[in-house]
Structure formats: C-alpha cells, structure tokens
Computed example of a mutant assay.
Amino acid sequence: MPRSHAQLPRLFVAADLADSVDLTLDKDQSLYLAAVLRKTIGDEVILFNGRDGAWLCRLSRDSKKSVVLSVVERIAPQTRATDFWYGFAPLKSERLDYVVQKAVEMGAGIIQPVYTQYTQVNRLKPERLRANAIEAAEQCEVLSVPQIAEDISLDRLIDGWAAEHGDRVLVFADESAPSATPVQTLGELAGRRIGLLVGPEGGFSETERQKLGALPYVIPISLGPRILRADTAAVAAMAIIQATIGDWR
C-alpha cells in the first residue's frame, strides 16, 4: 500500500467494492468516522472487505447517523488467505481478545477455539472473536480477515482431524517436551500444511498429552526452558513457525 495512505483510517465492510460506487456506512462506523475521528466531506478513508483488495474512498456526505463514501480507486490488490490453522484454549476477557488479535497479525488464516480439560472459559461469543479479528486487520493492513471456526472440544478436534484437515500436521506447544530449539523439528515440516495448537493456563493434562503424542500427525515442540503464559506461548510459537517454515522466509 502506498506510504501516503498509511495514516488513513481503515474500515472493513461487507459490501462489494468497485470503481465509482457509493457506500453508506452502518450507524457504528458512521459514528466512528464523524464523531470520534471527526472526518468531514472530502476526507479520505480506506475500505476493504476481504475479497476486493483495498480501496481509497472519500466522504461525500457526513452525518453521525449515516456517512456516505464514494469509492475513488483500488490502491492494493487482494491478498490470499493463508492456510495456517491456529487452535487455542480460550482465555479470559482481555487476554482472549489479545490472542485473537495477535493471531491475525501473525498470519493465521483459520482461528478455532479448542476446549481442553483445564480451559477456564466454557462459553464464547463468536461475534466478539470476529470483531477482534476485524479490528486487528483494520489496524495492521491485513486484507484477508481470518475465518473464525466454531469452537470445539479437543476430543472432537482429534476425532475429526483427518476428515476436516486431511494431511495437515498439528504442532502443539508442549511444556513437558525436552527443552531444545524447535527450529530443526519445524524445518523438517517445510512445505507441509500446518496447524498450531496452544493449550490453556496450566497446560494440557497428562491424558491429553499422551493422546496427542500417540497421533501420527502430531508434532510436539518445546518453547524453551521457561514457563510461558498461554498468550505469550501463542505468539512465540506462531513467530517461530512463520520464521522457519512460514511466510517470513
């Protein structure tokens, strides 16, 4: 995206984007632009919808209840969604928001909550997860908003893995694994479809760990000699995967 557009507000919309189209924003987005950012007629905004790339738009009518934007030109082509699956045991409140936002920033293409034995949260609001994913995409110039998959138990995930994911390898952050660099282990997976599973605070139970370890498509990795919080472990694991076999190379 051109540097001259880097400071413009970015908004995700559901509508199709094309040349010479006028779009009326919903109430919340209109309020955000008109009342919070104090944008007025003639000011520019960038819109994206996850399908049509990024588009430069200009306010043609402003009101706190209804802002109309005129599409000017496409400034970035649509990027492909990644095939990187990220599963995580739901955490509480702000830390839940954090892991979803960081997964978007780190290039996850599919995000799925996975309930484990020690998971402390047993109910989620999918719309909140989606909102956090969209917000992260808006802030970080991500054009492909990840899919938020339906929450699932670890047992159901494992039982249906082959049918749902085919030959995808499942890497799981195992705090009980021998402390060693995971670089060599991950390097051997280059070119494979990858999934990452990070457990809750307290980690996986011994039963879960044994069940995962017995599966041929599961690869346990250590994240070093220190005990990491679940949200820290998630970012660390995604970073090492992207750096060794992902799209950072």
Rank of each mutant, 00 (worst) to 15 (best):
T119V: 14
Y217G: 11
S179Y: 05
S60I: 12
L23I: 15
V36W: 01
P225K: 10
D43L: 07
V71E: 00
A133Q: 12
G195R: 04
G187I: 12
I110R: 08
G166F: 15
V198C: 03
W85S: 05
W161P: 04
W55E: 00
Y98K: 08
D155I: 11
T82I: 11
L154T: 07
Q7L: 06
I134T: 09
E208T: 13
A35M: 01
G109R: 12
P113H: 04
A243N: 04
K125H: 05
D22C: 01
D52F: 08
A190W: 07
E141A: 13
A131G: 03
R156G: 00
H165K: 10
P200D: 01
D167W: 01
S179A: 15
I194H: 04
L196K: 10
G50Y: 14
A180R: 15
P9Q: 10
A237R: 09
R10Y: 01
V99I: 14
G246K: 12
A14W: 02
Y118T: 13
A15G: 00
A34P: 02
Y217L: 14
T82C: 09
L69S: 04
I41A: 08
K27A: 11
K27M: 08
D97R: 10
L143D: 03
E141W: 11
T185H: 05
F48N: 10
D174C: 08
R123M: 05
A162L: 15
G213H: 06
A133W: 14
G42V: 05
L170G: 10
A162W: 13
Q184C: 03
S176M: 13
K39E: 06
S205D: 11
D43E: 14
G160D: 13
D16R: 00
L212H: 08
V67E: 05
L157H: 05
A190L: 09
L47M: 03
A81G: 15
R168S: 02
A136V: 06
T79C: 03
E141D: 13
R128D: 04
V13P: 01
V198D: 01
D28G: 04
L17P: 08
D155P: 00
A149Q: 14
I221M: 08
P113G: 02
V121W: 02
R95P: 02
D167C: 02
I158N: 01
R209Y: 07
P126Q: 06
R249N: 05
V72K: 02
A103S: 15
S93I: 09
T79L: 12
V45N: 01
M1T: 09
A239D: 07
A6E: 12
L124Q: 06
N132E: 03
R38P: 05
P113M: 03
W55P: 00
H5K: 01
F88Y: 14
L17I: 11
D174K: 10
A162V: 15
D83K: 13
G246D: 11
D155Q: 15
I152N: 01
T24Y: 13
L33C: 02
D97M: 04
G50M: 14
L47T: 02
E138L: 01
L143G: 09
L129R: 11
L96Q: 15
R74P: 01
F172Y: 14
G160Q: 10
W85D: 07
A233Y: 03
A237G: 05
E201K: 09
V99W: 03
V169L: 12
G160I: 04
V218Y: 06
I111P: 11
A173F: 08
L11H: 08
E175K: 09
V145D: 02
E135S: 03
A137G: 02
L189P: 14
E150F: 02
I111M: 09
L31R: 13
A190P: 00
S63M: 11
